[in-house]
């Protein structure tokens, strides 16, 4: 079974983001970029499936700018077998929309015929949480989102999902799209031998047009603002004072 893992190049989770002066988005110039952490978890899971003999090949895919090649190399250094880069924009500030990505992924799936697609549940830049679900709909496949446990057994997969009320376990038919949550695993570090091998692994370069997909944006960003700064709190001297203040604030 082939496993496809879509990975997105996003602003590094350690970077303190800044909104661009014109409000069109977040400033990405000269900022450290990394693999979306949820996608890293998906890559790790795919490699574990391969190590457990449940997958034969792990293919990492990224849709975006040319620089996403670095992100794919990271996936290859972790242990993916090969990679496909689909260039859909030449501007690092253009975010490729979930439906566009899902359509391109469908094109790749039609060619590669994987048994499983493992996605991060969302990208930490725009938090859309949509690509996996859209892909499942386009393919007419089952889907299991927010996976914190995944067990594949022949034609079906048992997935534990992190839902608002707790954990929900479902069984889905293969092939399927699974989006992974934070607690599924702890991604490995790229080992030195794998880092050195990554460059020799195949990385195919494609364009959105190769899959007949128009990647131009359909959504318009009206404005981007930083979250309002939290107002300073106050210290109270006693429970009585606390109750009084809460009453004043209309909270009790």
């Amino acid at each position: 079974m082939k496993v496809i893992v879509p990975v997105k190049r996003v602003i590094d989770y350690n970077v303190k983001v800044r909104v661009k002066a014109d409000g069109s988005g977040v400033d990405l110039a000269n900022v450290k970029m990394s693999m979306n952490p949820f996608d890293e978890i998906a890559v790790e899971q795919a490699i574990r499936l391969k190590e457990a003999g449940k997958a034969d090949e792990v293919i990492a895919v990224s849709v975006g700018v040319k620089q996403a090649q670095e992100t794919l190399r990271t996936a290859l250094a972790m242990g993916a077998d090969r990679a496909i880069l689909v260039i859909a924009s030449d501007d690092v500030h253009t975010d490729i929309e979930p439906l566009t990505v899902a359509k391109i992924l469908k094109g790749i799936i039609d060619e590669e015929q994987p048994g499983l697609v493992l996605c991060g549940k969302q990208a930490i830049d725009n938090d859309m949480n949509a690509t996996g679900q859209m892909l499942s709909a386009l393919m007419g496949w089952s889907q299991a989102t927010f996976a914190s446990e995944l067990d594949i057994d022949g034609d079906s997969a048992t997935v534990t999902r992190e839902v608002d009320g707790g954990l929900q376990t479902i069984k889905v038919n293969m092939p399927t799209v699974v989006t992974v949550d934070l607690r599924l695993n702890e991604p490995r570090y790229a080992s030195l031998p794998n880092i050195m091998k990554a460059k020799k692994k195949p990385l195919d370069e494609k364009t959105a047009a190769d899959y007949g997909v128009d990647a131009s944006p359909r959504l318009e960003i009206v404005n981007t603002v930083e979250p309002a700064a939290r107002a300073a709190g106050i210290k109270v001297g006693s429970v009585d004072e606390l109750i009084e203040k809460l009453k004043e604030a209309g909270a009790v």
């Binding site: 190399r73 570090y189 880092i195």
Partner: peptide, 15 residues
């Protein structure tokens, strides 16, 4: 190079 960047990333994350 890409390899050097990955070496830096791995060692830094490890530390």
């Amino acid at each position: 190079s890409e390899e050097q960047n990955m070496i830096v990333d791995t060692v830094r994350s490890f530390v």
